[in-house]
Design a binder for these strands. Structure first.
Length: 867
RNA sequence: GCCCAGGUGGCGGAAUUGGUAGACGCGCUAGCUUCAGGUGCUAGUGCCCGUAAGGGCGUGGAAGUUCGAGUCUUCUCCUGGGCACCA
């Protein structure tokens, strides 16, 4: 009896699929289409276990749908622009393009070893000029359509590295690489008008029924729609300059509790006031280091700078409010200015306590007394009755908001307004390794688009990374061009696109990867939307929102016909592993330690030193904690099917999965046992799978197996449809156990009819594991004498008439405690069930002479007798 | 600070609309296969009491609704995630 040899088998079947062209897709078919897409990888160098999980999940769906008769599109490409390539260039003196394409070579080979059912003919990388030229083309169309525009915006600027930093690269106000204090700089940048579609992007979330609720909620919060009032406070200028301060509020009901006004540090008014105020300048500068993340601002101490101005209260004659520049006001939200009502906003309260401002409660909880309701250190945010508020007194919060807005509108001091947190999408990056923005700056003509016939604007290859800053800026020739309008001297834009643009339409390009236009309309109309999109939850907001926006933008300029790119979305959990730390504090890789179990406790020792190692927390696999396992090693040792099976077993796909050696060993052993079971199929006397059922009665054991096998086919199908792969795996184990039990019950020489049942069950088992362990399944299929390749077989169909049961076991409870089990006919009349339960020996004796007060019969489930 | 998700055996995890908690797997225990083993097979395995039959207790904690709660309600504790330029 030979062991299953994955090392031999897997490359063999991969070559067979290749030769047969199983996975190259065409839209010339009458089968219904199904587009399965996993988020394409960044070519970082090697695939990691997160990729293995992601692509295994997608491959199960792709192969399953294929077996169900769908024309499946399952492509792969590379999200190939981005910072790591430039970092590598700086650190290792390798060109970003060389580094990237080399990584792609490596990772493609790794993915191919996984045995994925991918149409590799459609592969592309976003750094291919043939891809990004369409991006440039569409950008010019967006500009024409008014969907893209240019404006000044703040960025985190590292003065030493001469580069713009992402928020996460700013650590304690300093650049992550240089350690220099980060400055806020105003740069002219390109924006896409995402905010113009805020309402649509929000409203359409309701229709995305096959998206996780969580993701839709995160996007809704991100879009952050609020209804409120935009109004102007008149300013009282001690230096007699008149003016107004426009604020936005969602709580105009609390206007009578206002005790100050505040503007953001980067508010234009703050800048104006600071012109002659060095202290204010210093304050504004200190605020810049805080960054703009909501979290940091919420947690920071609320600080303000009092300016020499006051604002007139709109409702209270003679009341003036002091004005501050404050660190917790966001310029990007609303108007960048607020009125502060300390009693009903925690930030305002913290601020008021620090600067000794008055705290007047104007909303009193319904169960409190207005006379003695005071605010201590917690602002009151709930509903209640208005107090201390003149014409609003006595109203609840909602009507008070309405009335306050009406009054302000009557006074012509403001108007009702809907506000969104969603801002326009800044797409300029001051970096080399990205898609060049196709614009030319001419001193005479201003900003001139690159003529479409000159596209693509390709990146120059001859650049160096030996000095800080974007090499495009200091390139000797690349940026100097003639102005397309006047022919005079002009310069190219040296900024490149945010890489999120690249990933905002790649799914559309896969439909027609070689088209001369961005899309081939016939192809995208056929394939889109993506029926099932699969990826990490970390993309819940930005990538998915940008892709939704970009699809609408592409529709506006005629490249697609739909709004929503992804019909179904599934977000998988992370792959985690234990961490190991030696006593000198250094992290150790799983390879470097030996685990032993003694007296139930697991201990780890370092293989090299023999010293004990602390077993730490289970965390996401990461290079910094060294708790990674290389998929290549696993595939080399156990084979791809083992890795795939392990990923699918046990943990639900949406949750984190813990990679363990024991689990992998278990998966590998199961493969061996499964192969052994299939190999017991006796080619000489067992009928091949798929032959007609012979005449003759089935033994009891064979009848049982048949019922189980057909029941399990239904169960596995349902679980795969619902993405419950771990439960599908559990059912497959059940089928495996059932076949083993039948084999041992039927003995050495079953009759032909029983042999046929065994063949059928083995065939089902093989077909069911097909999407999960495709190589092993092919090997089994061949052994069972199946025709052709397993990958071309239809999904097994269960005979529903075989799965009906006519007798069931239900529980009998006395006062809610289980006391007996009852074997009864299915769907037996409730009165009969009650009679049987009361007649049960055990139950009858427990009841004795007590009175039966009530009997609850739940058909086919339970009987509860109350005494 | 705000928002969200999740707490079930030694472990990963199952449990239709409230209806026998612990499917399936890992691990562990005993035995078998003359077994060098890391393989395979059989039986057992939530905890406590009991030789057994059986009983008691059990889904983070507290209370509630119900004939019946892992599931519903309220409060609470803990863990994880997100909160505007990594990808």
């Amino acid at each position: 009896m030979a062991r299953y040899n994955a090392k031999e088998s897997e490359p063999k079947w991969q070559a067979r699929w290749d030769e047969a062209g199983c996975f190259s897709t065409s839209q010339q078919t009458d089968r219904p289409k199904y587009y399965v897409l996993e988020m394409f990888p960044y070519p970082s160098g090697r695939i990691h276990m997160g990729h293995v999980r992601n692509y295994t999940l997608g491959d199960v769906i792709a192969r399953y749908k294929r077996a169900c008769g769908f024309n499946v599109l399952h492509p792969m490409g590379w999200d190939a622009f981005g910072m790591p390539a430039e970092n590598a260039a700086m650190e290792n003196n390798v060109h970003p393009a060389d580094w990237t394409y080399r990584n792609i070579e490596t990772m493609r080979a790794q993915l191919k070893k996984m045995g994925l059912s991918i149409d590799w003919d459609r592969e592309f990388a976003t750094c291919d000029p043939d891809y990004y030229k369409h991006e440039q083309w569409m950008f010019l169309e967006f500009v024409e359509a008014g969907l893209a525009y240019r404006k000044e915006a703040n960025v985190n600027w590292d003065p030493v590295d001469q580069t713009v930093l992402a928020n996460e690269q700013v650590i304690d106000g300093c650049g992550w690489r240089s350690g220099a204090p980060v400055e806020q700089r105003k740069l002219a940048q390109w924006f896409l008008r995402t905010s113009a579609l805020a309402e649509d992007l929000l409203g359409s979330l309701d229709d995305l029924e096959r998206w996780p609720e969580k993701v839709r909620l995160m996007q809704a919060n991100w879009i952050g729609r609020s209804e409120g009032l935009r109004m102007t406070f008149d300013l009282v200028d001690k230096g007699n300059q008149a003016g107004g301060l426009e604020i936005y509020t969602t709580r105009p009901d609390t206007l009578f509790g206002a005790s100050f006004c505040a503007v953001a540090p980067d508010h234009p008014l703050a800048a104006a006031w600071a012109e002659h105020d060095a202290d204010l300048q210093a304050f504004i500068k200190s605020c810049e280091q805080l960054g703009t993340s909501e979290e940091k601002i919420e947690k920071a101490e609320k600080l303000g700078y009092r300016v020499n101005l006051t604002a007139r209260h709109p409702f209270i004659d003679g009341k003036e409010l002091p004005i501050y520049v404050a660190n917790f006001i966001l310029m990007a939200y609303g108007t960048g200015a607020v009125f502060g009502c300390p009693a009903h906003d925690q930030r305002d309260l913290d601020f008021a306590r620090k600067y000794n401002l008055e705290v007047t409660p104007v909303v009193v909880p319904n169960d409190a007394d207005a006379a003695d309701f005071v605010i201590a250190d917690k602002a009151y945010l709930g509903d209640g009755r208005l107090a201390n508020s003149d014409f609003l007194n006595g109203l609840a919060v909602a009507p008070a908001i309405e009335k306050a807005i009406e009054r302000i509108e009557q006074m012509s001091k403001g108007q009702r307004s809907v506000n969104y947190k969603l801002r326009d999408w800044g797409v300029s990056r001051q970096r080399y390794w990205g898609c060049p923005i196709p614009m030319i700056h001419c001193d005479d003509c201003g900003i001139v688009p690159v003529p479409k016939h000159d596209l693509p604007v390709t990146l120059p290859h001859d650049v160096t990374f030996d000095q800080p800053g974007n090499p495009l800026i200091r390139h000797a020739t690349w940026k100097y061009v003639a102005c397309p309008k006047c022919g005079g001297k002009a310069e190219r834009e040296t900024d490149t696109f945010d890489t999120f643009i690249d990933s905002s339409w790649y799914f559309a390009r896969f439909c027609s990867p070689h088209a001369a236009q961005p899309t081939d309309r016939q192809a995208v109309d056929y394939w889109l939307p993506v029926d099932q999109y699969i990826g990490g939850i970390e993309h819940a907001i930005l990538h998915l929102l940008y892709a939704r926006f970009y699809t609408r933008a592409m529709k506006a300029v005629g490249h697609v016909a739909l709004d929503e790119p992804f019909d179904g979305l599934f977000t998988q959990g992370m792959v985690t592993h234990e961490t190991y730390q030696s006593d000198d504090g250094k992290w150790r890789t799983p390879d470097e330690v030996t685990i032993t179990a003694r007296d139930g406790a697991r201990r780890a020792t370092a293989k090299d030193t023999g010293r004990s190692v602390t077993i730490g927390a289970i965390e996401k696999m990461s290079k910094s904690k060294k708790n990674t396992v290389d998929p290549d090693d696993i595939i080399a040792h156990y084979g791809a099917d083992t890795a795939r099976w392990f990923m699918l077993s046990d943990s639900p796909p949406e949750r984190d999965v813990q990679w363990t050696e024991a689990g992998v060993e278990g998966a590998w052993r199961f493969i061996q046992r499964l192969w052994t079971l299939i190999e017991q199929h006796d080619v000489a006397c067992d009928p091949p799978y798929g032959t007609a059922q012979p005449q003759g009665d089935l033994s009891e054991a064979a009848r049982t197996l048949r019922r189980q096998a057909h029941t399990i086919v239904i169960a596995v199908t349902e679980e795969i449809e619902r993405f419950h792969f771990n439960r599908a795996v559990a059912h497959i184990y059940e089928l495996f156990n059932a076949i083993k039990a039948a084999v041992s019950a039927l003995g050495a020489n079953p009759c032909p009819a029983d042999r046929w049942v065994l063949s059928e069950a083995r065939g089902f088992l093989t077909l069911l594991i097909g999407p999960m362990m495709p190589h092993l399944a092919e090997q089994c299929w061949a052994r069972l004498g199946g025709k052709g390749l397993l990958v071309d077989q239809m999904w097994p169909q269960a005979d529903r008439s075989l799965v009906v049961v006519d007798e069931i076991t239900i529980a009998v409870q006395l006062n809610g405690k289980r006391r007996a089990e009852l074997r009864i006919a299915k769907d037996l009349d409730p009165a009969e069930v009650e009679k049987a339960a009361l007649a049960h020996e055990r139950i009858a004796s427990e009841i004795g002479d007590k009175t039966v007060r009530r009997v609850i019969v739940v058909p086919n489930r339970i009987v509860n007798i109350v005494i």
